[in-house]
Design a protein around this nucleic acid. Sequence first.
DNA 1: GCCTTATCATTTGGCGCCTAACGAAAATCA
DNA 2: TGATTTTCGTTAGGCGCCAAATGATAAGGC
Lengths: 178, 178
Amino acid sequence: MPLLLLKQLPRFECLLQAANRYPDLNPGAASAFLHLLRTGDLIFDSEAACLAASGLSQGRFSILMLLNRHPDTPQTPATLADESGVTRATITGLLDTLEKDALVQRTSSPDDRRLTLVHLTPKGIALMDSLLPGYFRHVSTLLAPLSPEERTQLVDLLQKIQQGLGEPAPSSNCSQSH
Amino acid sequence: MPLLLLKQLPRFECLLQAANRYPDLNPGAASAFLHLLRTGDLIFDSEAACLAASGLSQGRFSILMLLNRHPDTPQTPATLADESGVTRATITGLLDTLEKDALVQRTSSPDDRRLTLVHLTPKGIALMDSLLPGYFRHVSTLLAPLSPEERTQLVDLLQKIQQGLGEPAPSSNCSQSH
DNA sequence: GCCTTATCATTTGGCGCCTAACGAAAATCA
DNA sequence: TGATTTTCGTTAGGCGCCAAATGATAAGGC
């Protein structure tokens, strides 16, 4: 993530104290919120550092992952944007650098001249083949502190939060301040 | 976070299938990893949308939060950088926009002419006063799907992962690919 | 006192992300 | 067929983030 989170999380007592000043502050929720953001951030940075060793950013890596799913069938920037959850403008920029590094190649579609087809080059395939085993081991290492039961427990809790985010919840509008 | 994560997470069966191709892929760890990144991302975006209603980004908001802790004692860009976990160059940019909006003000320190002192303007204080109650309610709403017990359970699990990240763990180097 | 070193904030240039606007090409409809 | 609308990828401009280099100032060693 783009971060800028408190480098060291406030102690729970500080949250309790702040709750005196701000009656709307729920210390338990705030603590979970901060830990969630913080952990996501750390994981994110850890992944970024792992990929940087291969000269990749998360964005570029995501594109390569999507293309690597079906290395033989090229994809359009539009579908890559939809699958990765990023705008097409961003895809254009990522493909520019990936193509400059000769990891992917753009081709014009013969059927529809609006379309651009993107596919991995042999160099791109080779990079993924050499990168992925270590990447997957890295992911396993990050979750190593948790037992398999704890991992499913964590996923369950996170899914509950995700579902809550799906439905915007009428009272979650924070723009009305009082 | 800067994201670009899979928009829809792969089903667990797909992870199992991928594990056939990549022996290093631990489906349970990968699932937890993806959910963690995804939830952090959603929370992050939700917070960003909440703050955007007041014309703030997370970065600018973090600065204002740090200054709001002790509104009477100005702080230097260096300490703001240390506390927020961002480089001083980034702080310079954030202060530029905050000062342009008249939310903070820079002053030269009379004691040490290298130092710049930053403090909230009355407008900045007023913005925080009007913003924070709704912000804290927003945070509470995000965590509403979880009971208090589940929240502490979540915090415990996240702390275990954070501790694992503290010690780099000798086998977590993903740059060695085989 | 002077020279070296450290520290401060800033600037420069780069990447990733966005929104908005663009021209080209296809699809749709009259 | 011709005009409108949609979809495509890209460009332009802005913000947030970074590393590295810079000039100003302070602190320390001699």
